[in-house]
């Protein structure tokens, strides 16, 4: 009888295996190497138990988020690393009502962790935000998360971001040169560029993102389409389980040295570029807050998107409570424990 039972069980497993013989393809889009989870998540071998079995994984680098929205719409990628602003734009302007927030990438301004800084030159006459009238402000891209925060700060201080200042665009790695060569009076700086010792020596912080938002910003989230999640739920839970296990490994201070080595190898930069801050909790000297169980802060996300709308950078209201599916990441977290 027992033999029969196990035979039956084996047959069931076999049937299930053949039914899902083809592992689900997960293509995950990101922009910044190392700072974005998808670029390094499974670079530490042996953490992804289901990889190659129930799903296959590919990290795809994109030049900015707009092509990611096209990729999601066209089913060319399954998960995208989207800033809160891009997520709202994808839902509202691209009409992707079936886009779902499924996990956290990182949050800005969580107590004890890093918040983005806006720098002016040390000897600059600009003492407060009000002094910015008529000045040149650098931004990475109009409508981006960092840009929204800057514009919100201006409005708070009675400065019209369209008329009273001159906004120019530059990539984050060039921001320091923009400031020191006086092509811009204020620059935003994000990790790792804000840790540049030359920048620190030449400048001071005018304000931080936390000053503007008044708390956390759910900067970047993982997003996927509902149709994909429904169809491949089992594989997605497996993937999330592997991801959370990997995140635990990366965030564990015990593994710091190895984590830095892998980050250096992947990004082709020296280990010293990461050693001080990567996955380290050290206020303005350390990393952003990355949730160990990949759980996003939906309340913060809603507030951030509302701010975007208030600034006129988003037409309608985007209700995050209807646009999330955290059941997968929660179920996966239970499995890891």
């Amino acid at each position: 009888m027992r033999a029969l039972k196990s035979l039956f069980a084996a047959a069931l497993v076999l049937a299930a295996a053949t039914a899902s013989a083809q592992p689900v393809k997960i293509r995950f889009a990101y922009v910044v190497p190392v700072a974005n989870w998808p670029s390094i998540l499974f670079e530490k071998q042996g953490l992804a138990r289901h990889l190659g079995k129930s799903y296959t994984y590919e990290a795809v680098r994109f030049q900015g988020t707009p092509p990611m929205i096209t990729g999601l719409a066209n089913n060319e990628i399954e998960i995208a690393d989207l800033a809160f602003a891009s997520f709202a734009i994808a839902v509202e302007n691209a009409g992707m009502k079936d886009l779902r927030v499924i996990a956290d990438e990182f949050q800005d301004g969580t107590p004890g962790y890093y918040t983005d800084e806006y720098f002016v030159l040390k000897d600059s006459p600009i003492k407060t935000v009000k002094d910015l009238k008529g000045k040149i402000l650098a931004t990475n891209a109009a409508g981006s998360a960092v840009d929204i925060v800057m514009r919100a700060m201006l409005r708070k201080n009675g400065i019209d971001d369209r008329k009273d200042v001159n906004v120019v665009e530059a990539a984050f790695p060039n921001m320091k040169a923009m400031l020191t060569s006086k092509k811009a009076d204020v620059i935003p700086a994000v990790i790792p560029f804000s840790f540049d010792p030359d920048l620190r020596a030449a400048s001071r912080v005018l304000f931080t993102q936390k000053d503007v938002v008044g708390g956390r910003t759910q900067m970047i989230i993982w997003a996927a389409r509902e149709s994909f999640l429904k169809k491949n739920r089992a594989a997605m839970v497996d993937f999330m389980e592997d991801s959370i296990r990997a995140v635990h490994w990366w965030l564990d201070p015990k593994n710091h040295k190895e984590a830095v080595e892998i980050a250096a190898r992947v990004s082709k930069r020296p280990a010293a570029a990461f050693d001080k801050w990567l996955f380290v909790k050290a206020g303005q000297e350390g990393d952003y807050y990355r949730d160990p169980n990949l759980l996003p802060d939906l309340k913060a996300l809603q507030a951030n998107i509302d701010l975007q709308q208030k600034l006129g950078l988003l037409k309608g209201k985007v209700d995050v409570s209807k646009l999330n599916d955290l059941s997968i990441v929660k179920e996966a977290a239970k499995r890891v424990k």
């Binding site: 707009p66 929205i69 734009i89 994808a90 302007n93 691209a94 891209a141 109009a142 409508g143 981006s144 950078l313």
Partner: peptide, 8 residues
Amino acid sequence: TATRFADS
């Protein structure tokens, strides 16, 4: 600008 705002 249109691309960034998903303005097809």
